[in-house]
Amino acid sequence: MHDNHDIDILISEVGPRDGLQSVKATMPTALKTAWISALAGAGLREIEIGSFVPAKLLPQMADAAQLVAHGRTLPGLFVTALVPNLKGAQAAFEAGVQKITVPVSVSEPHSLANIRKTHAQVIEEVRGVIALRNQHYPHVQVEAGLSTVFGCTIQGVVPADEVIRLALVMAGLGVDEVGLADTVGYANPTQVRQLFSRLRNELGTVAGSAHFHNTRGQGLANVVAALDVGVTTIDASQGGIGGCPYAPGASGNIVTEDLVYLLESMGLRTGIDIDRLVAAREWLQQGLPGEPLYGFIPDAGVGKNFHYAKDL
């Protein structure tokens, strides 16, 4: 488990997975490892280093096992990866990950489009992953990452009852956490408050992280709504890269740099040094020349009134 007693909010950096997976170019492994080291050096405690999928499908992710091995050498870093199925889970476990996230679309049409599986098939897949974990890799955590929970480009409205029903199924299968993701950037703060409240009431400690996209500019507002109802793990991506295949021209994930500023200025400790975090963008710029990077803090700086939470 994490040893995070000295921080209030855990930021899970998903740039190396959700970011790089969404970019056509493939970042060289040497630059990825330098980038991950720089992120960890800035104080990030959890990094999703990639996804375990066939290299022919996503060549950007072909070096996932190498990156796990590298991440495990970095002191204090918790190494996670995304896996779409049992085969991916097996590879991730063998590589030495400390946690896997299995994406589960609440919208069945999205599930069919994304991984060509019905809900019944996804449930069987997760059952197999949990059995494998319990038998051979008991120390690895398994998270079900529910996606399209706030709406879906294919299905449209996704009822909250459906989200909770599927979350309870996942908890029943034995996952350690159920996270909620706003895959297409439809969420608003009222909806976030209501859904995470219900999730926490129904699942208790199994209720997990929040993954928001900034597609329509609501990302940080949704973070504050999640904080209001007790969420303590938030996903973000350096430079806001990735996370937005369906909305051309829109930024995708919420920007790690801006999130750290928000939390620290609100008096919530993240353990992250903003200057070192902004400096880590250099590896991203080298690895993905010409790729747009987002964020206000890298351009504006933190301002004269800023203090880290620990100094407030």
Rank of each mutant, 00 (worst) to 15 (best):
G217V: 11
G208Y: 02
L199R: 05
D228L: 10
G219R: 02
T190V: 13
P189A: 06
H211S: 12
V224H: 09
N201P: 08
A207S: 12
H213N: 12
Q194S: 13
V206N: 10
A225C: 11
A207C: 11
R198H: 07
G219Y: 00
L220W: 09
Q218V: 00
T205K: 14
A207G: 10
S209H: 12
V192A: 01
L220D: 04
P189M: 02
A221D: 03
R198P: 04
S209D: 13
V223W: 06
N214G: 11
G204H: 13
G217L: 15
A187I: 07
R198G: 04
S197M: 09
P189D: 05
N214D: 15
L199H: 03
H213G: 08
T190I: 09
R200C: 08
G217M: 15
D228I: 08
Q194C: 09
G204Q: 12
L220M: 10
P189W: 04
Q218R: 00
V223F: 00
P189C: 04
R216D: 02
A207V: 00
D228S: 13
A187M: 01
R193G: 03
Q191H: 05
G217W: 15
G208K: 07
A225W: 07
A210W: 05
V192D: 01
G204I: 09
R200D: 05
T215M: 03
T215R: 00
L195R: 04
L203I: 09
N214T: 13
T190D: 10
N222L: 00
A210F: 05
G208M: 04
L220T: 01
G219L: 05
V224T: 08
E202F: 09
V192S: 04
H211K: 12
Q191S: 05
G219W: 01
F196K: 02
Q191F: 06
G219A: 11
V206A: 14
S209K: 08
T190H: 10
